[in-house]
Computed example of a mutant assay.
Amino acid sequence: MEVKECVAKHPKLNRLKLIRRIVFMIVGAGLFSVGLEIFLVPNNIIDGGITGISIILAHETRLPLGIFLTVLNVPFLLLGYKQIGKTFAFSTLFAVLMMSIGTSLLIPVPPLTIDPLLASVFGGIILGIGVGLVIRSGGSLDGTEIVAILVSKKSPFSVGEIVMFFNVFILGSAGFVFGWDHAMYSLIAYFIAFKMIDITIEGVDQSKSVWIISDNNDEIGEAITSRLGRGVTYLEGEGGFTGSYKKVIFCVISRLEEAKLKSIVDEMDTGAFLAIGNIHDVKGGRFKKKDIH
């Protein structure tokens, strides 16, 4: 009842969110199309997943790339509809259709470079940003992960391992179709795109979560607050071996503050337990830095 009332009270906000998602998916799919048709495809360089298979098939059959991007992705969306949810399925279908249309519209546009290394680097960057924008908007541009989810349920392999196997097989196939030098360029483009997806989703100034267990918890907590300007939270813990009470410090810092935090912990307690992990999003609370006087 509360959710319905909330939705009813903020119809403009919901419409703005929907419009924002659609715009980002269109922009992301457009960038992906540019990366393919203006950089990778003219230089016989492929990407991983369904996109890589589509590029190979389009090259062998001389049919438009957009046809294969749609025909190969849609069956996997239908197959995994129950596993991935209605919203994600429709978002992905919309993004794939926009990508297919984009590749068709860009066919007459000449490539910006015929240097395969430049094409790999800049094509990978643009592809990665495009995919990252679509993922941030709740969709996807490739059905490989859907296949991996379904296969992992009936095999001992994880989703990541299955996706890696698919991509190694697909990128390796480029060696037989385009030559092994182009297969190696394809690996460069794939790696760059993979890293750009992470950067686009997580942001350049990536946040990090920190857990600290020490006998000098209070001193470390005060030092983090006064010297880094970050708030800390004390959690209650129990030692697994000794069963003794442990106080755990939790805080969130920026990537640039990691080195300074480590030096603070080492200065206070060289034997302290310190665990640092990446965080995709930070929202709410008091994450904003306090002024340090």
Rank of each mutant, 00 (worst) to 15 (best):
Met25Phe: 08
Gly102Val: 01
Lys82Val: 01
Tyr234Cys: 05
Ile276Gly: 05
Tyr185Trp: 12
Leu13Arg: 13
Glu258Trp: 07
His182Leu: 11
Gly80His: 03
Ala275Trp: 10
Ala89Ser: 14
Lys17Pro: 05
Arg136Ala: 06
Arg20Asn: 09
Phe39Ala: 08
Val177Thr: 09
Leu13His: 07
Phe176Arg: 05
Leu97Ile: 05
Asp47His: 08
Gly271Trp: 01
Gly221Gln: 08
Thr70Pro: 11
Leu13Asn: 08
Asn167Pro: 10
Val204Met: 12
Met164Thr: 14
Gly229Trp: 08
Arg21Cys: 12
Gln83Trp: 01
Asp115Cys: 08
Arg136Gly: 10
Val163His: 02
Glu267Asp: 14
Val265Thr: 10
Phe122Tyr: 01
Lys153Ala: 12
Asp198Trp: 15
Gly66Glu: 00
Ile114Thr: 14
His10Leu: 15
Ile45Met: 03
Asp215Pro: 11
His59Ile: 02
Ile192Met: 07
Thr225Arg: 11
Leu127Ile: 09
Asn217Arg: 13
His10Ser: 13
Ile46Asp: 01
Gly66Trp: 00
Ile126Asp: 02
Met196Glu: 05
Gly124His: 03
Ile146Gly: 06
Ile224Ser: 01
Gly30Trp: 04
Trp211Ile: 13
Ile212Tyr: 03
Ile114Gln: 11
Ile126Lys: 01
Leu105Thr: 06
Ile107Val: 14
Glu267Ala: 15
Met98Tyr: 03
Ile45Ala: 05
Gly231Ser: 15
His182Gly: 04
Asp181Lys: 13
Gly124Thr: 06
Asn44Lys: 12
Val109Thr: 07
Met99Ser: 04
Asn43Asp: 08
Leu150Val: 10
Ser263Asp: 06
Ile192Asn: 06
Ala58Asn: 02
Phe88Ala: 14
Leu78Arg: 06
Pro42Ile: 01
Val7Ala: 14
Lys82Pro: 01
Gly237Pro: 10
Ile170Trp: 00
Ser54Ile: 09
Glu267Lys: 15
Ile22Ala: 07
Glu219Ile: 15
Asp281Tyr: 10
Gly277Val: 15
Ala183Val: 03
Lys247Asp: 02
Thr242Arg: 13
Gly172Cys: 09
Met196Asn: 06
Leu117Val: 14
Asn167Tyr: 01
Ser120Ile: 09
Asp142Tyr: 00
Val34Pro: 14
Trp180Thr: 15
Val210Leu: 10
Ile45Leu: 09
His10Pro: 06
Ser137Cys: 15
Glu37Pro: 05
Pro42Trp: 02
Leu150Glu: 04
Lys247Ile: 05
Ile84Tyr: 02
Val131Gln: 02
Thr92Ser: 15
Ile149Arg: 10
Pro42Met: 03
Glu145Tyr: 05
Ala183Thr: 02
Ile279Pro: 02
Gly80Pro: 03
Phe241Cys: 06
Thr270Cys: 12
Arg255Trp: 10
Gly138Ala: 10
Gly49Tyr: 00
Gly231Phe: 10
Leu57Ala: 00
Leu133Tyr: 09
Phe241Gly: 02
Glu219Arg: 14
Ile146Val: 12
Gly277Leu: 13
Ser244Met: 09
Lys283Cys: 06
Gly271His: 08
Thr70Leu: 11
Lys17Arg: 12
Lys82Arg: 13
Asp281Phe: 10
Pro64Leu: 01
Tyr234Phe: 11
Asp291Tyr: 10
Leu36Phe: 00
Gly124Glu: 07
Val159Ala: 08
Met99Glu: 01
Val151Cys: 08
Gly35Ile: 02
Asp266Ile: 14
Leu118His: 04
Phe176Ala: 11
Phe191Ala: 11
Ile212Gln: 03
Asp281Gln: 13
Leu31Cys: 15
Arg286Tyr: 12
Ala8Tyr: 07
Met98Arg: 04
Phe241Pro: 01
